[in-house]
Design a binder for these strands. Structure first.
Lengths: 228, 228
DNA sequence: GTCTATAGATTGATAGAC
DNA sequence: GTCTATCAATCTATAGAC
């Protein structure tokens, strides 16, 4: 699992005239805007003109950056799904018990998704609009991600650290909890992200899986915050 | 919460010529077909011609049964959401402890959704396409449903039956698990519905909420199956 | 209750000037 | 890299015959 790519940006704070932005920056701008609109209205309900308007250009100009509307959707889905794997799976390979690794993974998953809620929802709900080849690629990432988690759950069950009895069911339940957050979490809601992270580590690792170490809020400091 | 409406059906096994079906039967046929296609492709990607073709008529003929495409979506969403409330909330009002009532509710929720997975997914993901008035009506049902569950969780926490500490978070987590099932469950998969129901009662009520009575698979017979 | 025919708007995408 | 102009297809919905 390689580290996330770091590419040089144009000097920050130096506004670039819209008509002269570099190709890569403009692409990212388009993808970000499209993700936001796709998440709100659904892929098929959004026109190229809607996406273009959101970045201040005309519909036809989008075809300089992407050959088709589906390619924009593909980039939204691929980026969030691939980065989920790249950023979070390493926590499952780190040293420590299955419970410790899963606790760090739960934190990483939630902290990763927090600033990417719209992309995440698009990646969950709009896969049907992808071409078969693109869809298969995304599905592969998702299947691998879920299988890795299920395997760590199974390892914790074998070692006796988890008292749960069915790894498949526990993994489905865990992902239900984890992915549900994109549906209901809002930055201006009653619950802060850190509250949710600490609460969900307890609910998933401590309670659902049954790892004593994380069974209540007084548990030891939770390891593995965001990579900083 | 009133009992579900029971209306007489035409004698079963007596096929009715397509061109002479009663209005009500045809409406239900259209709604069922539309739900299936909306779930697969997304509301906006489906044309009236697609829905019509699935029931063996022409696109224009749909307007004899529904005044607009959005009204079909509205009927899909309203029916599944209203019936979720009508069928399952009574289990929260039944006699018994909060744990017993929630266990029966979890079973009812899952058994209700099993034959209605496509309608459920449409009701979860396509709300953005509803008119504001229709959307508000569906949202009211969903908010009420979730609030009732959260209140029973809070009651069980006050009585000491549940060891969970945050009713809001526990309710969000529980609905994440419960609603996730429509995403992954397939009748031809490895897990049967009864396995999932028994497993999820343990995971949600016994483990996440911390009700001793349901803490493991050997627990007492689970009460309150589907109403029959 | 379903049909054919069609209006009127919108869509994804292309061509070619600047 | 963005524009204007436009094509061809498709869409929701309506009109009116049967």
């Amino acid at each position: 699992m390689s580290a996330p790519k770091r590419i040089d940006e144009p000097a920050p704070g130096r506004p670039v005239p819209a008509a002269r932005r570099s190709g890569r920056v403009r692409r990212e701008e388009i993808v970000a805007a499209a993700a936001r609109i796709f998440a709100r209205q659904g892929y098929a309900a959004v026109g190229m003109r809607d996406i273009a308007e959101a970045v201040g250009i005309r519909g036809a100009s989008l075809y300089h950056h992407f050959p088709a509307k589906e390619e924009i959707l593909y980039e939204v889905c691929l980026t969030v799904t691939r980065e989920l794997n790249e950023q979070n799976l390493p926590f499952l390979d780190a040293p420590g018990t299955p419970a410790q690794r899963l606790a760090a993974f739960v934190r990483a998953h939630l902290e990763f998704l927090h600033p990417r809620r719209v992309e995440h929802m698009v990646g969950l709900h709009e896969l049907a609009a992808l071409t078969p080849a693109h869809r298969a690629e995304i599905d592969d990432y998702r299947r691998y991600y879920q299988r890795r988690v299920r395997d760590v759950i199974a390892a914790g069950m074998r070692s006796g650290e988890f008292t749960a009895t069915d790894a498949r069911l526990a993994a489905f339940a865990a992902f239900g909890v984890l992915n549900g957050i994109s549906t209901w979490f809002h930055d201006d809601g009653e619950l802060g992200l850190e509250e949710v992270v600490r609460g969900y580590v307890v609910l998933i690792v401590g309670r659902m899986l049954g790892a004593r170490e994380y069974a209540d809020d007084q548990a030891r400091a939770l390891p593995g915050g965001a990579q900083t």
